[in-house]
C-alpha cells in the first residue's frame, strides 16, 4: 500500500467518523438529552377533562378561578371535588382512588403543577387575564377535551416543569405591550 492510499482510506474513514460523530451528537442532543434531562411524573389522579366538560357540564372556571382577594386558584382544592364526589359518580378506577384516598380521609390532592415558577417570581393572573385579556392557552397547554391528565415533565437540573415561561419571554412581551419591566413588578 502506498502512503497515498493509506491517506485516502483514512480520509474516508475520517469523514465517516465525522458524520457519525455529528449525527451521534445530534441524536444525543436532540433525543437522548431531553430524555435524560426530564423526569416524567404523573398526576396523582388521572383527571379526565373531557368527561367533566361534556358529561358533568363543567366549565374551566368552575375549577380554575379567581379568589376574592385577587389571587388565582390554579389547582382546585379538594372541597371543589367533594361538591360532586362525596360518593363515587361512576365506576372508573381513578374516581374510586379519589374517594378512598382523598375525599374520605379529607386529604388535599397533591396535584403537580405544570408551570411552577421560582419562589422569587410573582406572576399575576389578574393582570394578564383580566387586564391584558390574554387567553389561558397563550401560556398553558390546552387540556380541554383531553381524556387523560398529561404527564408532567420535570427538569432534573432545575426542578421546574418543562415549558415554564422564561424571564426573557416575559420581558419581550412587556416591552411589546409597553408594560413596566421594573424588577419589582414580577419579583418579591
Amino acid at each position: 500500500m502506498t502512503g497515498e492510499n493509506k491517506q485516502q482510506s483514512s480520509g474516508l474513514l475520517g469523514w465517516v467518523l465525522f458524520v457519525l460523530g455529528f449525527a451521534g451528537a445530534l441524536f444525543v442532543g436532540w433525543i437522548v438529552f431531553p430524555q435524560l434531562l426530564f423526569s416524567t411524573k404523573y398526576q396523582p389522579i388521572n383527571y379526565n377533562h373531557s368527561i367533566h366538560q361534556e358529561e358533568a357540564g363543567l366549565s374551566c372556571e368552575d375549577c380554575h378561578f379567581f379568589l376574592e382577594d385577587g389571587t388565582f386558584a390554579g389547582k382546585p382544592k379538594l372541597s371543589t371535588c367533594v361538591e360532586c364526589h362525596s360518593e363515587p359518580q361512576g365506576e372508573t378506577e381513578d374516581e374510586a382512588k379519589l374517594v378512598s384516598e382523598y375525599v374520605e380521609p379529607e386529604k388535599q390532592i397533591p396535584w403537580i403543577s405544570y408551570s411552577r415558577q421560582p419562589d422569587n417570581v410573582f406572576f399575576s393572573h389578574a393582570a394578564h387575564v383580566r387586564m391584558a385579556e390574554m387567553e389561558c392557552t397563550d401560556c398553558h397547554q390546552d387540556v380541554s377535551g383531553q381524556t387523560k391528565a398529561p404527564p408532567v415533565k420535570i427538569n432534573r437540573l432545575t426542578g421546574y416543569p418543562n415549558g415554564i415561561i422564561k424571564m426573557y419571554v416575559c420581558e419581550n412581551c412587556h416591552v411589546r405591550e409597553n408594560v413596566s419591566n421594573a424588577c419589582d413588578v414580577c419579583h418579591h
Binding site: F66, D69, G70, F122, A126, D184
Partner: peptide, 15 residues
C-alpha cells in the same frame, strides 16, 4: 412591595 402586587391583583379582579 409584595403587598402592592397583591393589592393590584385584587383591584384588577374587581376591574
Amino acid at each position: 412591595v409584595h403587598r402592592l402586587q397583591l393589592a393590584k391583583d385584587k383591584a384588577f379582579v374587581e376591574g
